[in-house]
Simulated scan of single mutants.
Amino acid sequence: MSARSEQPTDGPLPRDSRMDSATEAFVAHRNLLFTVAYEMLGSAADAEDVLQEAWLRWAGVDLGAVLDRRAYLIRITARQALKRLRTLGRRKESYVGPWLPEPLLTSPDVAEDVELADSVSMAMLLVLETLQPTERAVFVLREVFDLDYDEIAEAVDKTPAAVRQIAHRARAHVAARRPRGTASPAETRAALEAFQRAVETGDLQSLLDILAPDVVALSDGGGIRHALLRPVVGVGPVARLLAVGWWKRDAERSLQPVQINGGPGLLVRVDGEIDGVLAVRVENGYITGAYHVRNPEKLSRVERETAVSR
């Protein structure tokens, strides 16, 4: 990976000054770098590990030879994330039941940035899971973070011409699978409120009214907690599942509206303890996707907000 001169220098900076400058740059871009790694991996824990690896490499860089610190940091983060992504693919092959991304509690301003919210949404991350690792890296770096083809080529060890072809193929793949409907903030709030009431009361008719005909429900227990072993599709099966399947238990439960991955969701507590997160996708006023994460290893980021940025 090359570094280019930002401006002439009289020689290397003293070590303390160089480390202060490196730390300042890394901290300034940390939320961005976390978002890059998270969108490539779908795992906050793995994204944090990638940031540690990226920092170790960044700390040894000659800063005086770096033209664009943001782009350079994104490249080294993406390179480390791509290595980890290939390893994760093998790990997911033995995962018990459906694999869902690690949910993030996000601030309301993330939802206001439509492009950012879409890029970190559970629905989009599931679409990205269907890409090959290099395709996913290229798509994220180009379509979400707007790196040029030369910079992406350095990150993924391909020629710029090859990256253009990969980007074209990845865009077509994602376009054929990404959700197409939209919802205004008011529609989203109304749908979530109606959905919450219906789930809390087990009102089958209300669920039938708020769910889209082709709604899909997925749940992830990771083999640790009870969860669906395959997707449930269609308004009738999903409504019955929500009315009597997930929620009927001899315990005190509560549902709290929250922002999950830039979209609407419910934080589920049983006997006061977090039991899971139910993120939903709202399109044209209806719930089209329900993503229930119960794997306790994936719930560490739902009690405090995680900052994401572009």
Rank of each mutant, 00 (worst) to 15 (best):
M1A: 11
M1Q: 03
S2A: 10
S2R: 13
T9S: 01
R15S: 11
A22R: 00
E24P: 03
R30D: 05
N31S: 06
V36N: 03
A37K: 02
Y38E: 00
M40I: 11
M40P: 02
G42I: 03
S43E: 06
A44R: 00
D46E: 10
V50S: 02
E53G: 13
E53S: 14
A65R: 04
D68R: 10
D68Q: 03
R69Y: 06
A71V: 08
L73K: 02
I76S: 04
Q80H: 13
L85N: 09
R86E: 05
L88T: 06
G89E: 10
G89S: 14
G89A: 13
R90C: 07
R91H: 10
S94H: 05
S94P: 06
P98L: 12
P101H: 02
E102R: 13
L104D: 01
S107A: 13
P108Q: 08
P108L: 05
V110T: 09
E112I: 04
E115Y: 03
L116K: 06
D118K: 08
V120P: 01
M122W: 07
M122N: 06
L125F: 06
L126F: 07
Q132A: 12
E135A: 08
A137N: 01
V140H: 06
E143A: 05
D146P: 09
L147R: 02
L147A: 12
D148G: 10
D150M: 10
V156A: 04
V156G: 03
P160Q: 08
A162T: 06
I166L: 12
R169W: 07
A170Q: 12
A170C: 03
P179T: 05
P179E: 04
G181I: 09
A183N: 02
S184Y: 11
S184L: 04
P185W: 01
A186H: 13
E187F: 07
T188R: 00
T188L: 12
A190E: 13
A191V: 01
E193K: 08
A194L: 12
Q196V: 07
A198T: 03
A198Q: 01
T201C: 04
D203W: 02
L204V: 09
Q205K: 00
S206M: 10
V216P: 08
L229P: 10
G236W: 11
P237Q: 05
V244N: 10
W246G: 14
W247R: 14
W247I: 13
A251G: 15
Q256V: 13
P257R: 09
G262Y: 07
G263V: 14
G265A: 12
L267T: 13
D271K: 10
G272K: 09
D275N: 15
D275M: 15
V277G: 08
V277Q: 08
L278A: 15
A279C: 04
V280M: 09
V280L: 07
R281V: 13
V282A: 03
V282H: 04
V282L: 06
A290E: 11
Y291G: 12
H292R: 14
R294D: 15
R294L: 14
R294P: 15
P296A: 11
K298Q: 13
E303K: 09
E305I: 08
E305V: 15
S309M: 02
